[in-house]
Design a protein around this nucleic acid. Structure first.
Lengths: 161, 161
DNA sequence: CACTTATTATTACTAACTCACAATAAGGCT
DNA sequence: AGCCTTATTGTGAGTTAGTAATAATAAGTG
């Protein structure tokens, strides 16, 4: 069980650096997010409870929200999905979501390493100071594509009138 | 009041082209979205009720969802905000959201006219067929920036411990 | 103008969070 | 090592945004 002690230490140090106390709840949440990237709060709760059964859902929401504000976690909200969390912060990588099955893949920045941080403002727009640029690719993953192309009598989800 | 009859006609034609009946509810919703871009369902309901008071919230949800599926409307979901709708479809422009006041600005595509439609897949990722790429810039608009820099005894929203 | 069925209204219901406050425990101090 | 302060977590209720099921209505066809 000593395998992730160094991880614990690293998280603890980061928490202290942000002026936060090192609690087992926060460590459990951070470990859960690290082990299950792109997971919603509910899944993180379930994963964290594996090592901390008395953890409550509300605590997870509080911790996730706070750590996200501190930029120790990154949150993104795909359409028709609850918010997802990941520990990869700092690099501004992006995400591709399969609109059919909801699978999420990380995507490195398309244009250099600060891709869309300098938007082309319209003439009449009031420019903002951009902090982050979330790029959300939406498409269909290979598995779902194959499943849809197969015509066999499987009840296809297509809503065609 | 004849000013937007041509608009009505255009919307009606588009609805017919998609095999949808032309109802006053749909026209009211489309007109409301056109007059109030980047608005949530609730605001669209309020705006549409100006010309169609008996319209219900659920109808607005149904109509917005259906028209979005038809790509007559575009929906995007900024963090901590309900889904927003707009009539600008086809061009893949992006959005900048002020994290402080929630204001939304349109942003033209940063890289040519199909900017991020070809993501750089990681070696071990399973590529998807990308349909759209939503780019969500998050930053602080000029107004909010000034409001935050002013130190005067105004109760600033900053949550600093 | 009647009729078929897409569309909308009504009502109930759910998911994903948020809020207020009481209970607990992390870390500084002695 | 133990106490104490207050950040953190737990408890329970409440809210927002949206979905689902079915009944009532009306668009468009013949």
């Amino acid at each position: 069980m000593t395998e992730h002690f160094d991880g614990q230490e690293a998280w603890a140090a980061a928490l202290r650096a942000h002026g936060r106390r090192v609690t087992k709840q926060r460590l459990a949440v951070l470990a859960a997010v690290e082990r299950h990237p792109h997971s919603p709060a509910e899944s993180i709760l379930a994963a964290a409870r594996a090592e901390l059964p008395e953890l409550t859902a509300q605590s997870v929401y509080v911790v996730l929200g706070d750590l996200t504000d501190l930029h120790m976690l990154r949150r993104f909200e795909p359409p028709h999905s609850p918010a997802l969390y990941e520990t990869r912060v700092g690099d501004n990588h992006h995400h591709a979501i399969c609109v059919s099955c909801g699978r999420v893949e990380d995507v490195d920045c398309a244009v250099g390493h600060a891709p869309c941080l300098t938007p082309h403002w319209n003439p009449n727009a009031k420019p903002m100071t951009i902090q982050i640029a979330d790029v959300m690719y939406q498409g269909i993953c290979q598995d779902c594509q194959q499943a849809q192309q197969l015509p066999p009598h499987s009840p296809s989800q297509k809503k065609e009138k």
